[in-house]
Design a protein around this nucleic acid. Structure first.
Lengths: 209, 209
DNA sequence: CCACTTTTCGACCATACGGCCTAAATTTCG
DNA sequence: CGAAATTTAGGCCGTATGGTCGAAAAGTGG
């Protein structure tokens, strides 16, 4: 019995175990994205896979762990994509442009995923849960962006500002547009917003000549 | 019996009725902000007021109507505040600055309200509900901002761009920073972000000399 | 004081959910 | 093959929720 959690040490989870977990997580994402978190009961997710509810209980400590895994998966996917895109170019301004463009390119192809993420974010009961999640999963994102900005300043391409603050602002702008777009797809022209964001933040950060 | 809904025509609701509704709505806001929407059952909200659960059922068609009313109240409050602030100054760039500063000033004083709003947003079950709400309640906000931008262009203070797109972007930036800040208060320096947003969007929109 | 209406209460109900348990099926391995 | 483990199924239970119902209370107008 109990695979549950491997509290410490090496991968206690078997290969099969990992596959099942991934399968369940994927189903959870699909279900949440399609019908909303409120309608995504364990029973429904299990149905989607074609398995019994208990299988989820067996492989995950509880719904919380499943949801946590869902979030991690979604964020990791997004971050990996953006990082790859950014790494393809050199120099602060180009990397900043790449970061923004990659963010929008990814979200354009994964609208359902972001819908799921927002649903889940909103469902965190306690303030502590939100903060904890934010710290562990969302910070790397901002840190990446802040790093780009700081290096760009050192290389003399950007004007003087606090990288962390501007990073929060840029990331906030991306997320904010994403939010609007997820809520009402047709109210936002994603491509145009991306282009506008690129040019605005270029104007806003570039060193004055 | 049935006050329920006044489907059409004049204020069918009595004065007492309105007071009760407001009282319940305020309690709902408090409860949601403090303990999260998930923990804000009708029973708990009723407790907060010191009334029976049925009273809510009597004055509101259901929980949905109550929540809708909560959202409307929160947004109206915010919009009224921002509009007043913007109206105090003249000229596109100053109005834009006022809009951003007012947004941040208001959120700094009403963090709980925004926490409640995000919770509620995330809880909308269907995509249609999200879209409907977005259209009726959130659009005016962007429209206001777009109006400022367009008039600023006509007066020659702003460069050429699509007002709607830039409005979506600016509003998105504000909302995005707000989102981060609500999730983790200490990860964002609100005042600094506000100042940075003001200067960045000034650089980004002002007509090149 | 007396009908009559509006408002409130407390109890109750049907439902949906997460989690648990036991037994069966399946896989693993000596 | 056969025993031990891993994994799955399906039923069950406690709980919390939104909503309803009939009766009681509070208010209103004559």
């Amino acid at each position: 019995m109990q695979p549950k959690n491997a509290p410490s040490g090496r991968p206690k989870r078997s290969f099969i175990e990992e596959v099942r977990r991934r399968q369940i997580v994927q189903s959870a994402i699909t279900t949440i994205a399609a019908r909303g978190l409120a309608q995504a009961s364990l029973a429904r997710i299990a149905d989607e896979v074609g398995i019994s509810k208990s299988v989820i209980s067996y492989h995950f400590a509880g719904k919380d762990e499943l949801i946590t895994e869902v979030i991690s998966t979604l964020l990791a996917e997004s971050n990996r994509f953006i990082k790859a895109w950014v790494d393809r170019v050199e120099g602060g301004p180009d990397k900043l442009r790449a970061y923004i463009e990659a963010s929008f390119a990814f979200m354009a192809e994964h609208r359902a995923n972001f819908a799921a993420m927002i649903d889940i974010w909103g469902s965190f009961g306690t303030v502590e849960a939100k903060r904890a999640f934010n710290a562990t999963a969302y910070d790397p994102c901002r840190r990446h962006l802040a790093g780009i900005l700081r290096r760009g300043q050192e290389e003399g391409d950007f004007r003087e500002f606090t990288p962390a603050t501007v990073a929060a602002t840029i990331q906030g702008a991306i997320d904010g547009v994403m939010l609007q777009w997820v809520f009402d797809e047709e109210s936002v022209d994603l491509a145009e917003c991306a282009a506008e964001l690129v040019s605005m933040f270029d104007l806003a950060t570039r060193r004055l000549p």
